[in-house]
Design a protein around this nucleic acid. Structure first.
Lengths: 176, 176
DNA sequence: TGTACATCAGTGAACGCGCGTTCACTGATGTAC
DNA sequence: TGTACATCAGTGAACGCGCGTTCACTGATGTAC
């Protein structure tokens, strides 16, 4: 459910894909990784655009918010990539997890980094840090799915905005 | 992607479905509503099994927990129905939303009732009640999707249990 | 500098598959007289 | 009570469609001598 679609998008005949990928699964894995990298890049861009030095409580909060916004924006602007990105299990086993800069670019790692900074900034209690990335991930992912392909997909723009704010505030409340 | 599958499950030839449904969309809508009713019924059963009278803070919390557990259990035990239940927009417009008992059986309505009880019990601040069903729904739905079909689908049972606990605690934290 | 050959991304036609859907049909059940 | 007929869930065969995939092929690009 991806091969012919991908070749169509590139403007090439379907079987041309077999020059580059052994089969459907291999292409799916490649698209999955590319999508993950795109999401990671969007997150990094968002985080980098937040002013305020490391350890500043307000800035740390805004960086976490930037990560969530990047996630939702990616889901909205690239629904196909978003769906494919999470179509495969164990996105953790991609081999090289770090690029040249020594930073882990993967989405989950960036979320963890932001949460660690919140701990260092004194916003989030260190005792509550362990595993808290999962509820936060779930809340944002759930919103993305419900408003993207789920029963909330047709809500008008202002309501969608309100939903994002509600989830954002709920996470904030759950951290402090 | 549902018609032949459904007739196969019933053990009948594919076109027999056209005795009962005009086309694929109508069958999809029927399955969607049936799935929603099943989820609603599971929630109601879970809530009814919680002892403690209305307004008791601890009992109110357990009733909310029962709703979340029913949601996750339904997603795990009936992945096909779960996916179909949320495949259509506007599950709100199903016509008769109330059964004979005068109660609204729909999942979202039951969640709202549980939250209203938490307000009445003094657990949740009334000022924070408005719209808080959406972040909670998102968190639980996100967990269901991530562990059901997403990248966390292959985590071992103990980890899945831990994830549920983490989300549950996070929601609790976000309410009080 | 030019010719010969390997490499390789992309083409065109065709395959089997499962999907939703249509058609003419069978066969049991209930109802009319 | 028995016969005639309508109703209607289910059957069997076939359709067009988009999917992943295979095959023999073209045509441009780079490399060897």
């Amino acid at each position: 459910m991806v091969l012919r679609e991908a070749t169509r998008k590139v403007g090439v005949v379907p079987n041309a894909a077999y020059r580059h990928f052994a089969d459907h699964d291999e292409l799916l894995a490649a698209v999955c990784e590319a999508a993950m990298r795109e999401l990671g890049a969007r997150m990094a861009t968002g985080v980098a655009s937040v002013r305020g030095k490391r350890g500043d409580p307000a800035a740390a909060g805004r960086r976490l918010g930037a990560i969530g916004s990047a996630y939702l924006e990616f889901a909205r602007e690239e629904p196909g990539l978003f769906a494919t990105a999470f179509a495969l299990p164990q996105q953790h086993a991609y081999g090289a997890s770090k690029d040249g800069s020594g930073e882990d670019w993967r989405p989950l790692a960036q979320l963890r980094t932001a949460l660690d900074e919140l701990v260092d900034a004194g916003v989030l209690d260190r005792k509550r840090r362990d595993g808290i990335e999962y509820p936060i991930w779930s809340a944002v992912h759930g919103l993305a799915v419900l408003t993207g392909q789920g029963p909330l997909r047709d809500v008008p723009e202002p309501m969608r905005h309100r939903l994002e704010k509600l989830v954002s505030r709920f996470i904030e409340q759950g951290l402090t």
